[in-house]
Computed example of a mutant assay.
Amino acid sequence: MRISELSRRTGIPVATIKFYLRERLLFPGHPTGRNQARYGVEHLRRLLLIRILTGFGDMDLATVRSLLAAMSDPEVPLIGLYTAAARRVGPPEPDADDEAFREALADTLGLAGTQGWTVGGDCAAVRHFAQVLVALRQLGCAQDLGFFEPFAQAADRLAEQELALLHEQGEGGEMDAVHVRAAALARAVVFEVAFATLRQIALQSRLTPNPANTP
């Protein structure tokens, strides 16, 4: 397909696609003449993935570049790909002597232990959640850790389903290795948004009066 067709099918302006080509976020097409090239389904998938990362993931192009590089590198294990996809700009790392953070970190590891999760205090997601606990406690919103157990249980079930899908696509031969990793990267971003959005829908539903219950 020509670049105009690529633009139509992805919803990404031609000028933006050309920018991605110049920045090597998108690999070149097959030359067909001076300043002309043909593009295939691989370019289409790559552009749709970039759109997910920049849109749903709200990532800058430097982050997108590093994720695409990790995705294409078979030496990067899947856990590394998921870790990179989950990385966000968060609050600065607290001082090593910050007692509130140390306490929250221990509590976070305790919560992880109730789910049988094998993670350590150096895990970026663990440290980020500990910072969430610190912020809540500073605001006087400190719930007992039991409050977060349903969150953890739901997250564990979703992780199990997500990895089962990954295994099914990889072992069943439905997709090759690069496509499996690209799909895993896309889901890592989109499912995070889906989880948060469903919670928002549930909250709005519970806060909206139900006409059926009105006398």
Results as ranks from 00 to 15, higher is better:
85 A>F: 02
85 A>W: 01
86 A>V: 06
87 R>W: 08
87 R>Y: 06
87 R>D: 11
88 R>C: 08
90 G>V: 10
90 G>D: 10
91 P>K: 08
91 P>I: 06
92 P>Y: 06
95 D>V: 04
95 D>C: 03
95 D>K: 04
97 D>A: 07
97 D>N: 04
98 D>T: 01
99 E>N: 01
100 A>V: 00
101 F>C: 01
102 R>L: 09
104 A>H: 02
104 A>K: 05
104 A>Q: 00
105 L>K: 04
105 L>V: 03
106 A>H: 06
109 L>C: 03
110 G>C: 05
111 L>G: 03
111 L>I: 01
112 A>R: 03
112 A>Y: 04
115 Q>H: 02
115 Q>F: 00
116 G>Y: 02
117 W>G: 04
119 V>Y: 03
119 V>L: 09
120 G>P: 07
121 G>N: 12
121 G>R: 12
122 D>H: 07
122 D>N: 11
123 C>A: 12
125 A>K: 02
125 A>Q: 12
125 A>W: 01
125 A>G: 01
125 A>P: 02
126 V>C: 03
126 V>W: 01
126 V>A: 05
127 R>L: 02
129 F>D: 05
130 A>M: 02
131 Q>S: 12
131 Q>V: 04
131 Q>C: 07
132 V>L: 07
132 V>T: 08
133 L>I: 07
133 L>Q: 10
134 V>A: 02
135 A>F: 03
136 L>N: 10
137 R>H: 08
138 Q>K: 12
139 L>K: 13
139 L>R: 12
139 L>C: 12
141 C>V: 11
142 A>W: 06
143 Q>Y: 14
144 D>C: 09
145 L>Y: 11
145 L>N: 14
147 F>C: 13
147 F>N: 11
148 F>D: 13
149 E>G: 12
150 P>C: 13
151 F>W: 15
152 A>C: 15
153 Q>C: 10
154 A>T: 15
154 A>S: 14
155 A>N: 11
156 D>N: 14
158 L>K: 07
160 E>G: 13
161 Q>P: 06
162 E>F: 06
164 A>P: 10
166 L>P: 01
166 L>G: 05
166 L>M: 07
169 Q>K: 09
